[in-house]
């Protein structure tokens, strides 16, 4: 069978691995250079408002010893997780419906444009004023900020759904649930992934603002406190922890998920 020859050979592993290793080396080098440059500038400036890496590390060790940073980070992460899930679910549902129903899309398009352009700070203030300085208001404010962005991305995805594949599924009378999971959803996956990535980056930043303005705990609240004391080493220590955490989520959850779900592309 001549056609069998056309099955692509398994991709050659070695050059890929070598490239990955070289990439990792460059990454490590870039971090080292960054820390050195930071240390140099801090030493030259010799200012209370620009502590060097060692001062920040010392502060970080102190927070880790008394456990306070874990509590704050945990609370903030929980808020990030809840508002992330709400924003993804609601935003995806809205986006899919708008992408599939042209009439609704025409009607709601201007609403979406308005929602996209309301400053995050305004949403936060309004939520706190209308619903009180509560947990619900805080989560709601974050989710509302992100929902229109998710909706726009998923609307794009729903518009790009391949009608030929949907017709195939209909011709074979594939049951609704299976059709959604195996034919429809996989086509949205790149859009979901993009929305999730940009969503995480945006949401954790907004959560900090929400905490600064109206919560008695969490990283945002603590940053506000250290800002008042002009304790920049503490501010940077918290920032560092959170950046590392978000990177960790990307590496531990998003990357493997993407690799698993798009293995067929290789």
């Amino acid at each position: 069978m001549a056609e069998a020859d056309a099955i692509a050979a398994a991709p050659v592993e070695r050059p890929l691995l070598a490239r990955a290793r070289r990439g990792a080396g460059a990454r490590v080098a870039s971090v080292v250079v960054f820390v050195l440059a930071w240390g140099l500038v801090a030493a030259l400036a010799h200012s209370r408002v620009l502590p060097g890496p060692l001062a920040v590390a010392a502060r970080l060790a102190e927070f880790a010893r008394n456990g306070q940073i874990f509590v704050d980070t945990g609370i903030t992460l929980a808020r990030v997780a809840v508002s992330f899930v709400i924003a993804m679910l609601v935003g995806s549902a809205i986006g899919i419906v708008l992408g599939r129903r042209r009439g609704l899309d025409h009607f709601f398009d201007s609403w979406l444009v308005i929602a996209l352009n309301v400053p995050a700070l305004v949403t936060i203030i309004l939520c706190y004023v209308w619903f009180g300085l509560s947990e619900v208001a805080a989560i709601l404010a974050v989710a509302i900020n992100k929902i229109p962005l998710v909706a726009v991305q998923l609307r794009e995805g729903a518009r790009a759904i391949d009608p030929d594949l949907m017709a195939m599924a209909e011709a074979f009378a594939v049951p609704r649930g299976r059709r959604f999971r195996r034919v429809f959803l996989p086509q949205l996956f790149p859009y979901l992934m993009a929305a999730a990535r940009s969503g995480l980056a945006l949401i954790w930043k907004i959560v900090l603002v929400v905490e600064l303005l109206g919560r008695p705990d969490g990283v945002g609240f603590r940053l506000g406190e250290y800002f008042q004391y002009f304790d920049i080493a503490a501010v940077l220590a918290y920032t560092l922890v959170f950046v590392v955490l978000v990177l960790g989520i990307e590496m531990a959850i998003f990357r493997p998920l993407e690799r698993r779900l798009s293995g067929w592309r290789q």
Binding site: D164, A167, S262
Partner: peptide
């Protein structure tokens, strides 16, 4: 009702690339 009327083959294969 609810079952495929026919086995269909289209102009393009229309296979799902992720399966």
């Amino acid at each position: 009702a609810g079952r495929a009327r026919a086995g269909c083959v289209f102009q393009t294969p229309r296979l799902l690339p992720w399966l």
